[in-house]
Amino acid sequence: MSDEQNNRLVDAYNRMLERVKGAIIDAEQNAIPNLAHNIENAREKAVELGELTREEAEKVGNYLKRDVENAGEYLNESGSELGEWFRFDMQLIEDRLLEMFRLIADRTSIELSELARRADALGEWHTGEITGIGTLECKACGEQVHFHKSGHIPPCPKCHETRFRRVSHSGE
Score class of each variant (00 low, 15 high):
M1E: 10
M1C: 12
M1T: 13
S2T: 11
S2K: 13
D3Y: 04
E4R: 15
N6V: 06
N6P: 01
V10D: 03
V10G: 05
D11W: 10
Y13H: 07
N14P: 02
N14H: 02
M16S: 02
L17H: 01
R19T: 05
V20D: 01
G22M: 08
I25K: 12
I25L: 15
A27L: 11
E28W: 13
Q29I: 11
P33K: 04
N34A: 08
L35W: 05
H37M: 07
N38G: 02
I39L: 08
E40C: 01
E40I: 09
A42P: 14
A42K: 11
A42H: 12
A42Y: 12
R43T: 05
R43G: 02
E44Y: 06
K45V: 05
L49P: 00
E55M: 06
E56N: 02
E58G: 11
V60Q: 01
V60G: 01
G61H: 00
G61V: 04
G61A: 08
K65E: 03
R66L: 03
D67T: 04
V68T: 03
E69K: 11
E69P: 01
E69N: 07
N70K: 14
N70F: 12
N70D: 15
A71F: 05
G72N: 09
G72R: 11
E73G: 05
E73P: 03
Y74E: 00
Y74W: 07
N76A: 12
E77G: 05
E81C: 10
G83V: 12
W85H: 09
F86A: 03
R87A: 11
L92K: 15
I93K: 11
E94A: 04
E94W: 08
R96C: 11
R96V: 14
L98M: 15
L98T: 13
R102V: 07
R102P: 04
R102Q: 14
L103M: 12
L103Q: 01
L103D: 09
A105V: 12
A105C: 13
A105S: 13
D106N: 15
R107I: 14
R107C: 02
R107K: 15
T108D: 02
S109C: 03
E111Q: 10
E114F: 12
L115A: 11
L115P: 06
A116F: 12
R117E: 03
D120F: 10
D120H: 08
D120V: 14
L122F: 05
G123L: 10
E124A: 02
E124L: 09
E124C: 10
E124Q: 10
W125H: 13
H126E: 14
G128S: 13
T131I: 13
G132F: 03
I133D: 01
I133M: 01
G134E: 07
G134N: 09
G134T: 07
L136T: 03
C138T: 09
K139L: 07
K139Q: 04
K139A: 10
A140E: 14
A140L: 15
C141Y: 02
G142D: 13
E143K: 13
Q144S: 06
H148M: 07
S150Q: 04
G151W: 04
H152W: 05
H152P: 07
H152C: 13
I153M: 07
P155C: 01
C156M: 04
P157M: 09
P157H: 08
K158G: 00
K158W: 00
T162M: 11
T162Y: 12
F164H: 09
F164N: 07
R165I: 02
R165F: 04
V167H: 14
S170I: 10
S170R: 14
S170A: 09
G171F: 15
G171V: 14
E172K: 15
